[in-house]
Simulated scan of single mutants.
Amino acid sequence: MPGDTILKGVGLRLLAIFFLSTMSALVKLAETRGATLFETMFWRQFCALPVVVAFVAMGPGLATLRTRRFGAHLGRSAVGLLGMVFTFGSVLLLPLAEATTFQFTVPIFATILGALILREPTGWQRWSAVLVGFAGVLIVAQPGAGHHVTPFGAVIGLLAALFVAIVAILLRQLGRTENSGTTVFWFSLLSLPPLALLYAFNLKPHDAATWAILVSIGLVGGMGQIALTAALRHAPVAVVVPMDYSGLVWATLYGWMLFGLLPGSATWLGAPVIVASGLFIVWREHRLGRQKVAAASAIEDA
């Protein structure tokens, strides 16, 4: 890929992480003003839907929203909805920096799921990276230490990362026939009925500022999703994924500005371990992918 195209992909990924980090901060801010988990989830999907539709309309066209794989979209939406419960729940239960740090375990879970479910070959190097990553998790969580990362919050944070990895596998399978805009649209649409039902039991009056925050959660989240999708059009996964770790910078900044919290010493020690583990896994995947392409080209040339 041309250098300017790759730079555009990196820039879009950084923008996406900024949007999604901002969304997490708004979720936590809404909770301090009385909004419930299911309220924030409903408004996240409801307000993101028109953003996604507009993106598809300006890109591949609304005709691409038609699908013959409704069942697959339904399954992806069910898993994604449960994953959203854990993702938003971790933001509410943990300081922003710690919730973000647990999200960095996604490559670790992706490696485990790839080996166990997809039967992908996984050598000792990647298994070693998995063990190192979980060592970093133990440093951050400090079981039994009695600090601000509770065991329950740590479990929810890890479950959030696990479900992100599961969704990634489902998206890989859906991506064989569906474009990304179609998948995001159906997830947003199909998740609204159950969320609306849950929201009906959690209706609350709010002031204008809280309503503005709830609407912003959806708009910012939708823009973040679009930027994530667009980044992969311009640069390979191995190039853009390391940009995700910039989320810790935004989480630390928002945590300090909005809630007066800075990451604890355990997070400063454990986060680099988890990041290093994830970066090695991504690099290893990229290297193996290039080797497969080179081997295939050699066979064709023979």
Score class of each variant (00 low, 15 high):
T87W: 01
T100Q: 10
V132L: 11
G89F: 13
A99Q: 02
E98W: 02
P151E: 13
G83I: 09
A99K: 07
Q103H: 14
T87D: 07
G153D: 05
H147E: 15
A165G: 11
G157L: 05
A99W: 01
G89I: 14
T100W: 02
R76H: 04
V167T: 04
T111W: 01
T87S: 13
T101G: 03
F134M: 11
A141F: 13
P151T: 14
A145Y: 15
A115H: 06
V85L: 11
F163T: 08
T101H: 04
I108T: 15
G89M: 13
Q103G: 07
I117L: 06
A110Y: 03
A78R: 11
V155I: 15
H148P: 00
A115F: 05
V149Q: 04
M84W: 06
P121Y: 06
V137S: 04
V137E: 02
T150S: 15
T122P: 00
V140D: 08
T87I: 15
V149R: 06
H73I: 05
A97N: 07
A97Y: 05
V167S: 03
L162I: 08
V85S: 08
P107N: 05
V106C: 02
F163Q: 07
G144E: 07
V137P: 02
L92Y: 09
A160V: 10
F152W: 12
L93M: 11
V132I: 14
T105I: 12
W127P: 03
Q103P: 07
G114H: 01
I117E: 03
G89Q: 10
M84R: 02
G71I: 15
G153S: 07
I156Y: 04
L159M: 11
F88M: 04
W127Y: 14
I139S: 12
A160I: 09
L162W: 02
G144D: 05
H147S: 09
I139N: 10
G71Q: 10
G80Q: 02
A110D: 12
Q125C: 11
Q142E: 13
F86W: 12
T150Y: 03
Q142H: 13
F104M: 05
V79Q: 07
Q125E: 12
P151G: 13
I139H: 12
V85H: 09
A154K: 02
A161M: 01
S128D: 14
R119P: 07
A161N: 01
V155R: 03
L74P: 08
E120A: 12
G146Q: 14
I117S: 06
G157Q: 04
A145L: 14
A72F: 04
P107V: 02
F152N: 12
G153I: 01
P95C: 02
F134E: 08
V85Q: 08
I139F: 13
I139Q: 11
L162C: 08
Q125A: 12
G133E: 04
L92Q: 11
W124V: 15
V79R: 00
G144Y: 10
L162N: 03
V91T: 00
V91G: 00
R126G: 11
G146S: 13
F109E: 09
